[in-house]
Amino acid sequence: MGSITLSNVKKAFGDTVVIPSIDLEVNNGEFVVFVGPSGCGKSTLLRMIAGLEDTSGGTIAIDGQDVTDLSAAKRGLAMVFQSYALYPHMTVRKNIAFPLKMAGLPAVEVDKRVAAAANVLNLNDYLDRRPGQLSGGQRQRVAIGRAIVREPTAFLFDEPLSNLDAALRVNMRLEISELHQTLGTTMIYVTHDQVEAMTMADKIVVLQAGRVEQVGSPLDLYRNPRNKFVAGFIGSPKMNFIDGEEAAKENAATIGIRPEHIELSTESGRWKGTVAVSEHLGSDTFVYVNVDGVGHLTARVEGERPVSHGDTVWLSPVAGRIHRFDAQDMTL
């Protein structure tokens, strides 16, 4: 079991309020991602759940039991840190065995579990090395191994992939997702990268300035963002925002259209503009267009479209895919 309930959780450092008040329910077995720009309080929130940071108010419960005043060591959670935080003076084997040693397990059982974890994570060849002799991806695996051996009630990940290069990041993303499928344990994952959030999460929690902006499944957030912030944060390339006259036509202060919901034509359409830059990715073409009276718009069109700098093009929004926001940036 691993359900986590936050009720009215607050955090302040001295006079600076970082998290005014948060209520959140994490169900057993769920993969929850906290996402938001840097400084939004997502890491602080995770560390409070971990017990590494005191809460200034409210309660945190794990499986219905109040753990607010319990130390990190006694909460039964495991965490993977951004820097991996491996013990540099211990071999990989000892790193992975450390939590079991702390739990006082018999040596035979420790060996068995370390071997099992090493198998799962492909670490068999490295067990007697020190962290300093490993690559970034291998260290990441050791950190995960150290987390899984003790069979925690939930896993906490604090931006675990941000120190890896792009290719490795995609691999590890898959591995963590697979791990979640296999273990079925609750996972809370903090990232500033919305792609990681979209690809891995069962449930995304979008945070900004210590407040929960929206909670929902990835597609839910993509389709029905509650406000302009969530709309802009989720999706890549970023949603286009248009205000002024064009928005007024739709009875809104601002309208938003995702680049993939703009149709591009070389003959006719709603807005006429000039191509500033076109990026040809093969599968897609990103076209950056200057439209008089509207501004810069990004369009994402499938396949290889032969447009280039200086071309005149027409852009039209896909019907029913226009997001409308009021003057307070809330979705209408």
Binding site: Y87, F98, P99, M102, R150
Partner: peptide
């Protein structure tokens, strides 16, 4: 790095374990 000591805490180490097994050797 402070994260290493925190990792030890997450791994179930109390203050004493933290000092003996992690801090001192490092």
């Amino acid at each position: 790095p402070g994260e290493i000591l925190e990792a030890a805490r997450m791994d179930g180490a109390n203050l004493w374990d933290e000092v003996v097994y992690v801090l001192t050797p490092m």
